[in-house]
Design a protein around this nucleic acid. Sequence first.
DNA 1: TTGTACGCGTTATCAA
DNA 2: TTGATAACGCGTACAA
Lengths: 336, 336
Amino acid sequence: MKQVTINDVAKAAGVSRQTVSRAMNDKGEISEETKERVLTAVRELGYRPNRMAQSMVTRRTGTVGLVFSDILNPFFPEVARGVQDVAREQEYNVFLCNTDDDPKVETQILQSLVAQGVDGIIILGSCLGAKALLEFADTYHPIIMTNRFVNHPNINQLIVDNIRGGALAAEHFIQQGHTQVGIITNENISYSRVRRVQGFFNTLLQHNLPCDESVIATGAPTLAGGYAAAKHLLTHQPQLTALFAYNDLMALGAMRACRDMGLDIPEHVSIIGFDDIHLTSIVSPSLSSVRVDKYMIGTKAMTRLLEMVARPDTIFPWQEMPVELVLRESTCLTFS
Amino acid sequence: MKQVTINDVAKAAGVSRQTVSRAMNDKGEISEETKERVLTAVRELGYRPNRMAQSMVTRRTGTVGLVFSDILNPFFPEVARGVQDVAREQEYNVFLCNTDDDPKVETQILQSLVAQGVDGIIILGSCLGAKALLEFADTYHPIIMTNRFVNHPNINQLIVDNIRGGALAAEHFIQQGHTQVGIITNENISYSRVRRVQGFFNTLLQHNLPCDESVIATGAPTLAGGYAAAKHLLTHQPQLTALFAYNDLMALGAMRACRDMGLDIPEHVSIIGFDDIHLTSIVSPSLSSVRVDKYMIGTKAMTRLLEMVARPDTIFPWQEMPVELVLRESTCLTFS
DNA sequence: TTGTACGCGTTATCAA
DNA sequence: TTGATAACGCGTACAA
């Protein structure tokens, strides 16, 4: 129950604390012989340095914070797994926090993580305004952020090519001959700021297709939210033959809404989602979606975070993640 | 960028550090007047106590570790959400760690969490042997563990009634007239130790149904694992008309294997999964499953953990979680 | 009611 | 190559 301290090891090995420290952090300045002796004692006593004590002097905690809206959205566990795997390699531990897309909660969480002394913070899709983010960045370094264009030396951006993702979806609909298409998006974010919706919307406009606010419905970025939004939209705009959803969960909710309304997919309504979570290929009909490599987002974010920790004065370039349209049964029967 | 310390506040308010500490942790022994003055200084400087420094002396970090096999299994995020929500209320932060059902990794993670100084650890379905767990419990308190019968004052158990869950599944198959049933289970855990399988197996035996190792297949507790196991099992034992799976992911993999083999569900093969993750009602045909209240597992675990932190000398009774069989299309067409 | 002095476990500095 | 000593920021006896 009692913790083994560096003093115990020092005593056991017949050396000073400092020597033990040197042996553990092998920075040289120690003979192989004594190092061996110390490490043996370490093993025998099962000594592990107390991270808090280390942190007091090194100013490093070996922890990072990963912030996102909701762990129940399968998108985030996939990213988290990437973050965690890189973290584990470097003996880092990761705090996972849900904001529920609530700015107040997010602010509180960020403060809590800072007080906790995390070495860095990764925010996946912040719901804070640019002003609040810049203000926060003034007090903290380093921050990794996805899909936000907030320019600050303490923030490194990881941008998914959402505009292109939306455009790919729109182009496919157009190519398939759809002329009446709707959008289901996240009610927590003004859709003019949602780049995947922008890309979709603008592509429609470029092809002179009718597209205005009347064919945009919003809801929570969840199954239930997508269900409600789709039901509302398809009830008021029955002419629609294609739907583009903010994410796969909303798309899946929309699929169910269609089923409940007696609309077949893709015969009556085609649907394209976003993110390409595992679920897309499990459901029937399977869901077409704009794929993003979620695991890689995680590994890239964490890797970059560690680089920034190691070199606090360097300003790193932002990174871009490509997207890819994956066609399945919800848009085209000839694909699987 | 420079951190504000308690000294800065003391200087600004013209008092000693101790007085600042008293004002912050309002333990009395301070006049309203000076307290006000101090708190004003705190606000103005934006002072937040350094958690590490606090931890050094209080022996509390305000952090806990949540350990499970894989965050990609949707079961765990649901539990995690419960843990996190209770944690947030109490200003606790949660480390989430994947073991991949590898004892070595799990051991390493536990050590890492201890070194990190977490106030407690929740282990969901440890893959360590009883000896290793007892050994660990000798060095750490408190530990919350699910579904393991390891008796130790530092460990509090949360037991899901898995035996009954397995029995419920078996009874349903029997009632539906199945006589040739198979089992798909987790290759990482000896099936004789998996209580849900035990409950299923024993119920079959009680009804004199043929049941031996030949109808048990194992695989990773994932979609792919379930797919491979089901394919193997159904190829070698084509007489089977019902499958019971270790968890929903394996069951979903089995469903796909059936589809690929031209077997209809439930006409040719009935399937029951375990956990009742969200997915079960989204897929088509929807999956019957033994339901567990995952969120409540999380809240109960975290709540109990905090009780144990607050009263380290108290030994708390173990808790049980009920299960419930939810019938859907994969077993019975008349249900939804 | 307030301030002083010490200790938590570790690393960094500097002298031996 | 080693060891003594001083931080790191805070809480807590104990003294004033």
